[in-house]
């Protein structure tokens, strides 16, 4: 019988990360296109593979994807990225996320000023 581990108890299981490729089961053509594309994206290009790994780590924190944080922390270590560099990348995420909220306060200020005598 097929087992569906943890599904009823928790939304996330670390073991599911290894099964990422299995998404092809429900749609092989798009999965193939996606994974081919994914592989090409992370190849050394105008950006180094190391830079791409750090960007992925920063984005992983922005979208708060536990699979991606797991994968790109390991990947960063395996690319010789230091703990300090990883933390700086996450602070970039935080600055942009925090800034995105804060910059909207200009709208709040505009509105408040318009309404106020």
């Amino acid at each position: 019988m097929q087992t569906i581990p943890f599904m009823e108890k928790t939304y996330y299981d670390p073991a599911d990360l290894k099964k990422f490729g299995d998404v092809a089961e429900f749609g092989p053509e798009l999965a193939k296109k996606f994974f081919d594309y994914y592989g090409d994206v992370f190849k050394e290009g105008a950006l180094t593979a190391r830079e791409k790994s750090l960007i992925a780590l920063a984005v992983a924190h922005a979208i708060q994807c536990p699979y991606c944080i797991d994968a790109y922390t390991s990947d960063s270590l395996e690319k010789g990225i230091t703990d300090e560099q990883m933390m700086e990348a996450v602070h970039v995420t935080t600055a942009i996320r925090g800034g995105a909220s804060l910059v909207h306060s200009v709208q709040m200020m505009n509105k408040s000023k318009k309404l106020s005598m």
């Binding site: 190391r50 390991s74 270590l77 395996e78 690319k79 010789g80």
Partner: peptide
């Protein structure tokens, strides 16, 4: 050698670092 349960980075890249 890696300080933990992960594989070493690219040798030439690390040598440069």
């Amino acid at each position: 050698n890696p300080a933990g349960a992960f594989l070493p980075a690219d040798q030439l890249q690390l040598e440069r670092d």
